[in-house]
Design a protein around this nucleic acid. Structure first.
Lengths: 138, 138
DNA sequence: CGCTTGACTTAGACATTGTCCATTGTAGGA
DNA sequence: TCCTACAATGGACAATGTCTAAGTCAAGCG
């Protein structure tokens, strides 16, 4: 089954049908679903699952660091199960399609001390924007 | 008056009291207000201004490229008047404080062709996350 | 195997943020 | 000054997310 599911089980998570379904839905590469999309796919497998449970479960996965929350457009947050391998995102400005990308370089090293304003910087997130092949052709 | 206001006038914008107030509220450095915060500050100067007008005006400024829309947290979008000078953002993970930063390096050059998936990449947005001095102390 | 318990799930109300529309108002040119 | 097209208004609606009280169940224990 899913790597994600195995990792969650290993953390002493109480395993329920609902959590299993959410983890299954999120599995894969280039997966960036909104909470409601996850809910819709989960319902297909387990019709009585509630919206609140999907939100709760996603939130817990994020807290555990097993899933990343991505806010690319100010609309619904998207959930990315690829938390174990650092990566960034490429977003189509028109249709919203998202791809995982792996740029070279280390942006953290590119922020000089005097530009940190005393912050303890722990993380950096790079979002490339442009048009996907389909939207560029249209 | 505000540079922002001057630039807007120069584009043939019809100038109204409401638009002037919104532009005034947004003026300055390290300004990253939500739409409702802009509305609240605008009301202080022009009590009868409506929420819809603030949203419309902000949207138009973004379309004109005079204001940048920033989605740092998946909650409310924030509006940054510093569109004329490229910069990125440093966000406190706890309290949400935002600073403008100017990293060295060029992230666009760090995305190899085979990582572009045929996209026409035109823009890159870097968000540093960490704790501000105040939240780190607490 | 069947309790017990505390964590999990549910449904729906509520909150926040953003959009739309029909009506009213007004900036700026003739 | 008057017209007209563009802008503002307010309130309904939509989308997304959060909370709560009550019911349900996974997992350890005897």
């Amino acid at each position: 089954m899913s790597d994600l599911l195995e990792r969650l089980r290993g953390r002493g998570w109480r395993m329920t049908a609902q959590r299993r379904v959410v983890a299954e839905v999120l599995n894969g590469d280039h997966v960036h679903l909104t909470a409601d999309e996850v809910h819709a796919k989960a319902i297909a497998k387990l019709p009585e699952i509630s919206r609140a449970t999907v939100y709760n479960t996603l939130g817990e996965m994020v807290t555990l660091g097993e899933v990343i929350e991505v806010a690319t457009d100010g609309r619904a947050k998207r959930y990315d199960p690829n938390a174990h391998r650092p990566h960034h995102h490429l977003v189509c400005a028109r249709c919203g399609a998202i791809r995982d990308v792996h740029p070279t370089g280390n942006p953290l090293a590119d922020l000089p001390d005097q530009e940190r304003f005393g912050f303890t910087v722990s993380e950096v997130e790079v979002t490339y924007r442009g048009l996907c092949p389909h939207c560029a052709a249209a």
